[in-house]
Design a protein around this nucleic acid. Sequence first.
RNA 1: GGAGAGGUGGCAGAGUGGUUGAAUGUGGCGGUCUCGAAAACCGUUGUACGGGCAACUGUACCGAGGGUUCGAAUCCCUCCCUCUCCGCCA
Length: 424
Amino acid sequence: MLDLKFIRDNIDAVRLNIKNKNESADVDQIPQLDEKRRSIIQEVEKLKNLRNVVSKEIAQLKKDGQNADDKIASMKDVSDNIKRLDDELRITEEQIYQVQLYIPNMTGPDVVAGKSAADNQIIRSWGDEYKKEVERNHIDIATDLAIIDFERGAKVSGSGFAFYRGKGAKLERALINFMLDYHLDNHGYTELMSPYLVNEKSMYGTGQLPKMAEDMYHAQEDNVYLIPTAEVPITNYHYDEMLPNEKLPIKYCGFSPCWRREAGSYGKEVRGFLRVHQFNKVEMVNFSRPDKSWEQLEILLSEAEDIVKALKLHYRVLRLCSGDTSFASSMTYDIEVWSPGEKNWLEVSSCSNFTDFQGRRANIRFRPEPNAKPEFIHTLNGSGLATSRIMVAMLEQYTDSDNCFHVPEALRKYTGFETISKND
RNA sequence: GGAGAGGUGGCAGAGUGGUUGAAUGUGGCGGUCUCGAAAACCGUUGUACGGGCAACUGUACCGAGGGUUCGAAUCCCUCCCUCUCCGCCA
């Protein structure tokens, strides 16, 4: 959410930003609604002041045993007017809020205006030496090794769901544990294991609602949502809180499955693990002072890169253009690994600075100095990493011509085995 | 799911219609005393919005939202949450 005062003072920039982000929000009605809001406040507060003063006079008169009927009668009208104006104010503020909810975060200074993924900037790439030519993609390999079962996933749950089986399941667990341990041991994170169902308020707090309602699984009976990312519970962990300045930045990481309906995305990149309704991810969340958040974003990105490097996978880093930068994000870096089977880049991490956008929605603040006014915190998060596409790249990268998968060095102490072959 | 109790300031805890933004305690901050500290004593200690260049000032906030009333922390309704007991259950 953007600050109302900011919108009022920067209406043109806000309008341009909406356009650059391919969003639609009718910001034009804000100035007059805000004007109306303020004039109502001034009027109603005058009346309330009058009411307070006269009420005290009435109390005094009664205490002195005198008659106060005249004053009470004269206040009746005032009271009715207050009620009417308060209603009007409430409606006006609700109208403003409903517009505000759909206004995206302002993009950061380094974000170029652009329409689509084609306009994203390539920042760097790494691990050229790990490129490899393969004939089979991850689906063939995994099916052949019987470590991932897409068919039965579809039978039991629907397309976009899969079973990990045998050594495949253990490999997945190894990957998750490796990533978590890496961040805990090397990057100073505190682990959070979170709820996977969250309430509506949390979804508004991080900005998934109201815009993304269609993309989430919703349990109507209890009005809770399956999380599309651990960002939601972990960021909202500090909902309505004042964070101690001396503890900043506060860094949490956590594993969770992620559920996404992916409504309307059929036909593209849906094969196998490329786009699924449920996948596993380790998420990193950072609560930062505003003056440090851009610096923290670079650190967060490097922490995610460390994982890909440790797995020795060829990857590149992109800075997303405005059109590709998500609703709540100010700036986002994507990490993409090379899939030899797809001959394409696959997104495995998104690292974003949300500035104060989520902090304002979720009311998470801190005090810059002991007696200073509270300010909204900056939040950042990044995948570190999503496993399904890492699994794609690993399977294609590390399976030899004899159809034997070699576990990457970094994962061996977690798997307890070094290879996976057909009859394991 | 059934029955009951409760949600007040950083925390604890008074307050059942009229100078209550809220007693009191405690914690925090500043000070006096002290070589220093403790104790004691004094002072101070919320947020949001509006107006004002500012000092300042107005309004609101006692779980949330409605209602009654000239006036609500206090009365009524709805919802949320916590706790206790019973039932069910991994």
